[in-house]
């Protein structure tokens, strides 16, 4: 177990005309080394949820346990929590500010007041992890391409060596090849560095391909939670809350609904194609 949320509630704009309960009685357990996707349309509470995980926002009621310790206890170190649970915001490249790539990535370790050698090692380690080569170390972050900037921004969070990486739409605005680069990076961090990944995503295709677990939010509540293969069975329910399933899955549902004897829980293009070919050949 790494993070446990118990009966968590959060309301923003309390006492104003804009008051809105963003999270309603959330109970969740995030396990070590999961690759979790959080989906939900705008205003479903998913961004608020991930900001609670590293203490950026504070729940109105309920508790959040990190490795069994209540993060709202007086003697709990928020600084420790924020180094262990790294948060990558939407469009993180907008937050690059240092004169060079290395300085930007080193900002976190230096801010943690680590000894210089450790800070340096983790900085270079993070840059290596995200695939930024030496030739770019002393370049201004502003001179990089969109995909490179985003990887540098992620390196800045990795440099403080988090156990859990939380990302708010890490693929937003990138072209398909750029999306794949970021996804392959997350997959590598997850499998090789054993970092637990929690990411908000809008692309069901990406979720189906990469995540081991998907949490579906609607109006501040968790409405579905499980393996993608199970969650994507509920196409009708997902559509009702403004979401969907991968086209490859939707096609199988559509065929089955019209009497075709196909397996419905295909997640990827390859799975659907081989199932359709099998079905077409069957007499």
């Amino acid at each position: 177990m790494s993070i446990l949320l118990r009966n968590v509630n959060y309301t923003y704009g309390k006492g104003s005309s804009e008051e809105k309960q963003a999270l309603k009685n959330i109970n969740l357990e995030i396990h070590k080394n999961e690759f979790t996707a959080i989906v939900g349309h705008t205003g479903s509470g998913k961004s608020t949820l991930i900001q609670l995980l590293n203490g950026l926002e504070k729940a109105d009621s309920g508790e959040i346990l990190f490795h069994g310790k209540n993060i709202y206890d007086k003697d709990f170190s928020m600084k420790m929590l924020r180094s262990k649970v790294g948060l990558v915001f939407q469009y993180p490249e907008h937050q690059l500010f240092e004169a060079t790539v290395v300085k930007d990535v080193a900002f976190g370790p230096n801010n943690m007041e680590w000894e210089p050698l450790k800070a340096e090692l983790s900085t270079f380690g993070a840059l290596k992890d995200v695939g930024i080569g030496e030739e770019l170390f002393d370049v201004s972050p502003l001179a990089l391409s969109g995909g490179q900037k985003r990887r540098v921004a992620i390196a800045g969070v990795l440099a403080v060596e988090p156990e859990i990486l939380v990302l708010d739409e890490p693929m937003a605005g990138l072209d398909p090849a750029g999306r794949k680069e970021i996804f392959d990076l997350l997959k590598k961090l997850h499998s090789e560095r054993k970092i637990t990944i929690i990411m908000v995503s809008h692309s069901m295709e990406d979720v189906a391909e990469y995540a081991s677990r998907v949490i579906v939010m609607n109006q501040g509540e968790v409405v579905l939670d499980g393996e993608p293969r199970k969650v994507f069975r509920y196409e009708k329910e997902l559509k009702q809350i403004g979401l969907g399933v991968p086209q490859a899955t939707s096609l199988m549902h559509c065929l089955a609904a019209q009497g075709a004897g196909v397996k419905e829980d295909c997640l990827t293009v390859q799975e659907s194609v081989s199932e359709i070919l099998k079905w077409l050949k069957r007499v």
Binding site: A177, E205, V269
Partner: peptide, 17 residues
Amino acid sequence: RLEAPQITQIVQELCRA
């Protein structure tokens, strides 16, 4: 650096088969 939607990919795979 582009990618066709899944439906297009499925159609093309089926054609190839």
